Simulated assay, not measured.
Amino acid sequence: MSAPLEHIFVEGQWKVAAPLSPAVKVGNLMFISGIPAYDEKGAIAVGDFPAQMKQTMATITGILASVGAGWDRVAKVNVLLTRREDFEEMNRIYAAHFPDGKYPARTTAIVYSLPRPNFLLEIECVAVLD
């Protein structure tokens, strides 16, 4: 029998309007969808990359915490940026979530656009849970 899928929705986070789950847990793996920078009210800091990056990381932190995990359990990250000039700032904010210097595998891509015109980034990841 295969492991059941558990669809993860975190109380207090923005409500997804698209046909997707913010995260899906199956067995000891959790797949976190591409997360944009919406705050709990569904607002986005238009044009402010550091604010969007920090919000996205906070949202993922909340998703991980909802299953008793942290960034130390993340094995793979995909970062999508719409502006190449945000790469260094992304790295600075991202690295702060890994104070021990043990980073997950990561791919960063500069993309032409994302689903909403104000999205400057989206981050998805896979975590291995205890």
Rank of each mutant, 00 (worst) to 15 (best):
I35S: 09
I35D: 06
P36V: 13
P36Y: 10
P36A: 10
P36L: 01
P36I: 06
A37M: 07
A37P: 15
A37W: 05
Y38M: 07
Y38G: 01
Y38Q: 11
Y38E: 06
Y38W: 14
D39S: 10
D39R: 09
D39Y: 02
E40Q: 13
E40A: 13
E40V: 00
K41W: 03
K41I: 00
K41E: 14
G42A: 04
G42R: 07
A43F: 03
A43N: 15
A43K: 14
A43G: 13
A43V: 02
A43L: 11
A43Q: 14
I44C: 10
I44S: 03
I44G: 05
I44Y: 01
A45C: 08
A45V: 02
A45T: 03
A45H: 03
V46E: 13
V46F: 04
V46T: 12
G47I: 00
G47S: 04
G47R: 02
D48V: 00
D48P: 00
D48E: 10
F49C: 01
F49W: 07
P50S: 02
P50L: 01
P50T: 03
P50E: 03
A51H: 01
A51I: 03
A51W: 00
A51M: 04
Q52L: 01
Q52T: 02
Q52H: 04
M53T: 02
M53I: 09
M53E: 03
K54G: 04
K54R: 14
K54Q: 14
Q55T: 15
Q55V: 08
Q55M: 15
Q55I: 09
Q55R: 15
T56K: 01
T56P: 05
M57D: 01
M57P: 00
M57N: 02
M57T: 08
A58S: 13
A58Y: 11
A58Q: 11
A58E: 11
A58H: 12
A58F: 12
T59L: 11
T59N: 15
T59V: 14
T59W: 05
I60R: 15
I60E: 13
I60Y: 04
I60Q: 14
I60T: 09
I60D: 07
I60M: 15
T61G: 12
T61C: 04
G62L: 11
G62F: 04
G62T: 10
G62M: 10
G62E: 14
G62C: 11
I63M: 12
I63E: 10
I63R: 10
L64M: 09
L64R: 09
L64H: 05
L64I: 06
A65H: 14
A65T: 12
A65P: 09
A65M: 10
A65W: 05
A65G: 13
S66I: 13
S66V: 13
S66H: 12
S66P: 12
V67N: 05
V67S: 07
V67L: 06
V67H: 06
G68D: 12
G68I: 12
G68T: 12
A69M: 06
A69Q: 08
A69Y: 03
G70Q: 11
W71S: 05
W71I: 07
W71Q: 05
W71R: 05
W71G: 04
W71T: 06
W71V: 09
D72I: 00
D72C: 01
D72Q: 14
D72P: 00
R73F: 07
R73V: 09
R73E: 15
